[in-house]
Simulated scan of single mutants.
Amino acid sequence: METQNLLTEIDGLLADMKAKDVQVLDVRGLSSVTDYMVIASATSTRHVKAVADHLTEQMKRRGTQPLGVEGQEASEWVLVDLGDVVVHVMQPQARAFYDLERLWARPEGAVQ
């Protein structure tokens, strides 16, 4: 699946499960692991797990096999690796603590 289509699919699936504050970070040139990171908040450990499970199941149905899923045990932060896109579903406290948006921000004036 083309990356822009994948991002659109992910956005829709996160919206289906009422994920909050969805952000897409373009990390091309900053990371050799992935091109985009999608960060979304969920309201509880159950919600985090439900969102990640829904995303994983629906991507498999669409023919995109996740390369890995991490963090399902604690469900404060679940990472779903879809290759060109890595999705982070986090509780607000974990999201604020790790502040991935700031960590992966492009330096001021950087060209993408």
Rank of each mutant, 00 (worst) to 15 (best):
83 G>P: 01
37 M>G: 02
86 V>S: 00
86 V>W: 00
97 F>S: 06
40 A>Q: 02
111 V>T: 13
82 L>K: 00
56 T>L: 06
101 E>Y: 08
108 E>L: 09
42 A>E: 00
101 E>A: 08
17 M>D: 06
18 K>T: 13
88 H>M: 05
91 Q>N: 07
33 V>H: 12
112 Q>A: 13
65 Q>E: 14
66 P>I: 05
46 R>G: 09
61 R>C: 10
85 V>R: 00
61 R>V: 15
15 A>N: 14
106 R>D: 06
32 S>C: 08
102 R>K: 14
3 T>N: 10
103 L>E: 07
90 M>T: 02
112 Q>Y: 10
81 D>Q: 08
96 A>I: 09
83 G>E: 03
19 A>Y: 02
3 T>F: 06
86 V>N: 01
109 G>K: 07
105 A>P: 05
23 Q>P: 05
26 D>K: 10
87 V>C: 03
90 M>E: 02
75 S>W: 01
73 E>R: 10
10 I>A: 01
28 R>K: 15
1 M>T: 10
27 V>R: 03
46 R>T: 15
69 V>E: 03
94 A>H: 04
34 T>M: 10
47 H>E: 06
15 A>L: 13
48 V>A: 02
86 V>Q: 01
77 W>S: 01
80 V>Q: 01
2 E>G: 08
59 M>W: 02
60 K>M: 12
9 E>S: 11
79 L>D: 04
40 A>G: 05
49 K>Y: 14
84 D>R: 03
20 K>Q: 14
79 L>S: 05
44 S>L: 10
4 Q>G: 07
85 V>M: 04
55 L>W: 00
78 V>S: 00
11 D>V: 09
15 A>G: 10
91 Q>T: 05
22 V>E: 03
58 Q>W: 08
46 R>D: 09
83 G>R: 03
17 M>K: 15
102 R>G: 11
34 T>F: 07
47 H>D: 05
61 R>L: 15
40 A>Y: 01
44 S>K: 07
91 Q>W: 03
106 R>T: 07
38 V>G: 01
92 P>V: 04
15 A>R: 13
17 M>L: 15
3 T>D: 09
54 H>D: 06
54 H>W: 14
15 A>M: 11
58 Q>D: 11
75 S>M: 04
100 L>M: 11
17 M>Q: 13
41 S>M: 03
112 Q>F: 09
49 K>A: 15
6 L>G: 01
68 G>K: 11
37 M>V: 05
43 T>E: 14
22 V>K: 03
41 S>P: 02
83 G>N: 06
87 V>Q: 00
28 R>P: 05
70 E>Y: 10
57 E>I: 15
110 A>F: 08
33 V>N: 11
100 L>I: 07
11 D>A: 15
68 G>D: 10
43 T>W: 10
